[in-house]
Design a protein around this nucleic acid. Structure first.
Length: 588
DNA sequence: AGCACGCCGACT
DNA sequence: GTCGGCGTGCTC
């Protein structure tokens, strides 16, 4: 008997092994087998008869039963095709870690799913969506899989639903117990991050995605697919019910809901704070707080509530007040960060450090001052302005908390007296077509965190931006209409799909030549727009990176597959490494 | 991805 | 004379 086995390697083809007498294997079972002399873990995708001479034997089974159902393997195959990556790297990244040697555990094979009647996916946007989900899962009779964006959210939901966890936030034994209990249908509800997307549940099941819009649902690396897209496919194949939860869904999901591909519960407006836009054109130079935000903090303190100030992640740079030039790293060309004590300028890329100069290297001007409000600078200013308040970047109990947008996630709904965006423009200026969507989602999240009677203050040089206007009016339709118009005009998702191809090598010329070859190979394919390759590595970086973008229709991965095969097949050091990212999210 | 095999510089 | 750099090829 021969077993065809896939591994977590970038080669999208199985390897064949002899199944030794006495070892009973099934499709979907995990095994150890020698690859390049070393023992590696793989998954059996086929068992067949044939000539096994010259084949090495499988060493052992990792579990005595299959860990992936046929449906899970098929789903993995689809996800690999969709993301132009290998079956093995996709499937193995979606299985729980192997047991510790000698650990005793109860395992059971995954329930095989029978193809069910497809049910329309549901988009839940109203402010009671999470409470409704909890209630629905308590009442319902289906088994359920809840996918949350990160470990903290998984922990909250596991506690709320009294459910077992499938993520790395619990111990290995507990995690594996949850996996196999789910396959027996013994857990009614299991919760995990995207690593649980293939968790076995006897269908029909309910599949729920928490905070559908969260970029954590498609981080860089395998599996290179958005959790939403995999769940949509999974639900369609086994007839599960799919619930997408988000107050501010991704533009793609909103668009599909408009096209009746999704049932959309009516989202009655929830409580909404006063949203004040403070126009900072020309006035945010030496103090981070405008009058409305100062008032918001005062009022918040008077009410005995906390205030939260949101800054951009970027650290402050040093700029010339005379000519406006920003001091950059002489090696890398990127703005250098000014340290807290203002004694040094550090390059965020190469870590080169120099003392800040006395004079502007451009115009010789003597007035150099910090540019951009990072949390440290804001804190210094706010402490000076409000000496009697407790102000902190770490302690969430302080009267004024300062942090990046990640701070918003830690604020319970309707709990703070005031949220202020110090400079929304740093978010709007991010060079990514999703910048407006991201800003909109953060504004909404901030508004939801404000307690009744509190205020949301948005300091911006673009008070008329549609993300700001729509958030102020709590008007989803207005935001998505404008955003979709922009996406449609410029050919962005959901109207066209994007693929990003990048080449890295020692020499810029090598990367460029490889990119040119690759782009040329794709230019003949009808329906594609291939943009010219551009260098994206700052001078000074060790590996020279050149990247280009392709736009195409929904079947883009199928159109690219054969033309890209020769480039994906030979990824090597000197010739350059080729990396393909379908549907990039701007974070990887 | 790893890992081995292979051909050219500085050195215990 | 070797040790070791990484460029190239292969993994059942």
């Amino acid at each position: 008997m021969i077993a065809d086995i896939i591994f977590d390697i970038p080669l999208d083809r199985p390897f064949s092994y002899l199944v030794p007498d006495g070892l009973a294997l099934s499709r979907g079972q995990r095994v150890s087998a020698p690859l390049h002399g070393r023992s590696r873990m793989g998954v059996v995708v086929a068992l067949r008869h044939g000539d096994a001479t010259r084949l090495k034997p499988v060493q052992r089974a990792v579990e005595p039963v299959p860990i992936a159902s046929d449906a899970a393997l098929d789903l993995g195959r689809w996800a690999a095709d969709e993301s132009l990556s290998s079956w093995g790297s996709t499937v193995l990244s979606l299985l729980p870690p192997p047991p510790r040697s000698g650990a005793a555990e109860t395992v059971s094979p995954p329930a095989e799913s029978s193809p069910g009647e497809a049910r329309p996916r549901e988009l839940w946007m109203d402010h009671r969506r999470e409470g409704r989900l909890a209630a629905s899962l308590e009442r319902g009779s289906d088994v359920a899989l809840v996918i949350a964006p990160d470990r903290d959210a998984v922990a909250r939901w596991a506690q709320r639903l009294d459910a077992a966890r499938l993520d790395s936030g619990v111990g290995l034994a507990e995690r594996r117990r949850a996996w196999f209990a789910a396959s027996r249908g013994r857990s009614r509800v299991v919760v995990g991050t995207r690593s649980a997307l293939l968790a076995p549940l006897p269908p029909p099941a309910t599949l729920a995605l928490i905070d559908e819009h969260d970029p954590a649902h498609k981080p860089p690396g395998a599996p290179r697919l958005h959790s939403r897209d995999l769940l949509v496919r999974r639900a369609a194949l086994d007839g599960s019910r799919l619930l997408l939860l988000s107050a501010t869904p991704s533009v793609e999901t909103w668009w599909r809901a408009q096209n009746k591909e999704t049932v959309q519960a009516e989202a009655e407006p929830g409580p909404w704070p006063e949203v004040i836009t403070a126009d900072t054109r020309g006035i945010l130079r030496n103090h981070p707080l405008t009058l409305p935000l100062t008032r918001g903090i005062e009022e918040s303190a008077r009410q005995g509530r906390r205030a939260a100030l949101i800054v951009s992640r970027r650290t402050a740079a040093l700029a010339c007040d005379e000519c406006g030039v920003i001091l950059r790293c002489p090696d890398c060309g990127v703005p250098r960060a000014l340290s807290r004590d203002r004694r040094e300028l550090r390059c965020p890329l190469c870590a080169r450090v120099d003392a800040p100069p006395d004079r502007c290297p451009g115009c010789g001007g003597r007035r150099l001052s910090p540019f951009g409000w990072d949390a440290e600078r804001v804190q210094t200013s706010v402490v000076r302005r409000f000496p009697r308040l407790t102000i902190s970047r770490e302690n969430r109990e302080a009267q004024v908390v300062i942090g990046t947008s990640a701070l918003l996630r830690t604020l319970p709904a309707r709990s703070v007296g005031c949220v202020g965006f110090i400079a929304l423009d740093t978010l709007l200026r991010v060079p990514d077509f999703r910048a407006g969507e991201r800003a909109w989602q953060l504004l909404w999240e901030a508004a939801e965190a404000v307690a009744p009677g509190g205020r949301l203050v948005v300091q911006t040089q673009h008070p008329d931006h549609y993300a700001v206007r729509s958030a102020r009016a709590q008007d989803r339709a207005a935001f998505y209409a404008e955003e979709l118009r922009f996406r449609s005009e410029l050919g962005y998702p959901p109207f066209r799909r994007i693929c990003e191809i990048s080449m890295r090598s020692r020499e810029e010329g090598t990367s460029r030549a490889l990119a040119a070859d690759c782009a040329a190979a794709l230019r003949g394919i009808p329906g594609l727009t291939v943009y010219p390759p551009a260098s994206v590595s700052p001078p000074g970086a060790r590996l020279r990176r050149v990247r280009f973008v392709i736009k195409g229709p929904a079947e883009l991965p199928r159109l690219l597959a054969s033309a890209l095969a020769p480039f994906l097949g030979r990824r090597r050091g000197s010739a350059g490494m080729v990396e393909v990212e379908m549907d990039p999210q701007g974070n990887g």
